[in-house]
Design a protein around this nucleic acid. Structure first.
Lengths: 219, 219, 219, 219
DNA sequence: AATGAATGAGCCTTCATTCAT
DNA sequence: GATGAATGAAGGCTCATTCAT
């Protein structure tokens, strides 16, 4: 199928590193899954750590390509752009379980940064965080200091990240019914965006529109 | 010094497991650090995994003991109790760097649950999450559905967790000056509590009081 | 029950050594089975090897006591005494599976002699072999040389031993029905005694009386 | 010298397993004796047990190759074929002391069967036992039941086996002079064959021809 | 006298890596 | 360029034994 051994190795390494971590994964296992010779990793990537870094890079690229941050028309209201941003983040975090190894692997890097982290931050996280800050700029008065804008951004990102990072714990704290009913990407995006906008005075308080929510659902 | 070998092993294992994870840590390394015989782990704990579980348990106990959730007077306004809750969480997350292995280890369990996670959730996380929900009950109308209350709770917890989980990434996105100036536990607690309360309509919008903030700082 | 720890250890060690051999058995296992402290073996017997030697000695003593070579009235025909001898050997070898650990352990010593073997030969095997030789003396002309008498004795003993030593192989070569039907102690004793006596001209040829056998069975 | 590491390992493992058994032997020891890396056994054989099974298989093959059961001309009298059979068995058991590890190892399997035993029985022992039964068929009336034929076969095999299995004990019961004089392979084969044939009525009683024996010896 | 705690040596196995081809 | 064979180092764990009490 895929004939470039480099790509085959990377594709095989991704899910394995994501599931077992750098230490837990073995080169043998990866080589077997990739259908290549046991010495190939050292041949193509030098050593295991280098392969790991490259795999993280690939994960980032695939994630950005598969779930790109949508082009946001400049005339779109900032509230809607914030909603789009949140929904995209959540999609990356908890959507598409069959390819979720990418976000899972990147999560590992965020939680325990290795050599692969710096690059991921500079080429992926910082640009998108700046994009988020630009959206917030339109929702905030000009004299709000920089660190406050950052922290609001972190608040939004943190809420999204939570459902990826603490997935296991969340599933212990809620019922399966609640999970399938109220913890979908759409619902969570709505909640998080609504909470942040409400905190900025740009939306009604959270909890005040539950009746309407129910009403909407009924429609 | 410490004479109980069990305790010495656990104390030595904590930072090592926290830093390198279960797979990355070796029993030899832990034994050397604890100054005990190489067979002691198997003697006292049966095997490595059991030691790991016990270490996670100890981490939870130490964390809960060092930074206990303060007793909250029933007559204290719910806003203040929410502020206390947030501040305590943040203290546990990012305070006391010399003992931060406990939270780091627990973070690992949250991110990648093992056998040790279930117990941690039941004995530590769920009770405190319920405490948070009770505080929110007082801040929300009665007809707000359960899942909304949960999600508001997760929003608050997620923001706190973020500064622990994404600590490395945050430090790449902000300057050291910003970190020491505006990312203290107090400031972050104020921000997060303010954001959540504002989103509930119980506090002025975030960003609206920056002038007062600057004023206070000047004093 | 048994209060002498030495005896308890020996009784526990017997079946374990018999089943797993010296290397395969562990002192922990023996101590647990005996219900004594893990250091008891070293305390009472010095080391594991010494315990093994003592266990072999005990096995010999128990075997001789439980299945003693019957007193043979001097007026009993030599043929009958030979039959008795053979039956006793077979009983020790393959009878009473619940207590057969003794013969099993002694078998190990015969096959791979250790320090415990010499004594077992002198105090147990040689006297009984001499007893066998005296029976044969009565069945053989005076001028048969000593080595022939020995070899006839070895032939008889070897046939008995075979069903213990090669028990596993025999059970693969015959059917379970054959085993329970024709490989009982009685049948085998009859066969072996008959074969030896026939070879000495003191009994009809083996295979010549099968009709009578069947006849007897029918009765 | 020998360049195939597999063969070197097997050759080194044979004597060690034969002497110390599966448990007693260590892979380190075998690797050192074979002059190969300590990981080679796992590399070539998977694990220690597999090496053991392969070593037993090799022992069987070498033994069969070194002392093959001779082709027996169909016109050769059954008595002579029985004599040949016995002599070959004894040669394998106690001949060629310098390569006796093969028979010793096989003895271990007979006495305490492991996973390697079944194969040894099916590919080696059963075919030759059947060969023996066919010889006996010619010496016995047709109406002798199957189990009697088997037991006569076991009687012959058991006598041969005895001198291997109980080698140590035999050497304690007889004098060195007797051993070198009357316990040679030839003499023992003659004795055992003679005893079995006599028991079938196909030869003069054992002990009746001692004079002729002495006479023959004198020639 | 007898034992619970503790230990050093050694076990088999797996690992990422190297090297001759 | 690419690989199958082979390896040194280290892994977790079990063992018989010791020693202070």
């Amino acid at each position: 199928m895929q004939q470039d051994p480099r790509v085959r190795i990377l594709s095989a390494a991704g899910p394995i590193f994501a599931e077992k971590g750098f230490e837990g994964a073995t080169v043998r296992e990866i080589c077997r899954a990739a259908g290549v010779n046991g010495a190939s990793i050292n041949y193509y990537f030098g050593d295991k750590e280098n392969l790991y870094v490259e795999t993280v890079r690939l994960a980032r690229q695939m994630r950005a390509a598969e779930v790109p941050m949508p082009d946001m028309a400049p005339d779109l209201p900032a509230e809607d752009r914030l909603r789009l941003f949140t929904r995209t983040m959540l999609r990356r975090m908890i959507g598409a379980p069959e390819t979720s190894w990418q976000s899972r692997l990147m999560m590992r890097e965020v939680v325990q940064p290795s050599r692969a982290c710096r690059q991921m931050v500079e080429e992926y996280i910082r640009p998108e965080f700046n994009q988020l800050l630009r959206i917030l700029d339109e929702l905030l008065p000009d004299d709000v200091p920089r660190h406050v804008r950052q922290q609001i951004g972190f608040s939004l990102v943190g809420q999204c990240l939570f459902y990826r990072v603490a997935r296991g714990v969340v599933s212990m704290l809620i019922t399966p019914d609640e999970a399938s009913e109220s913890y979908t990407i759409e619902r969570l995006a709505e909640h998080i965006t609504g909470l942040v906008l409400a905190s900025l005075g740009q939306a009604p308080p959270v909890g005040s529109n539950h009746a309407q929510e129910s009403l909407q659902e009924a429609v």
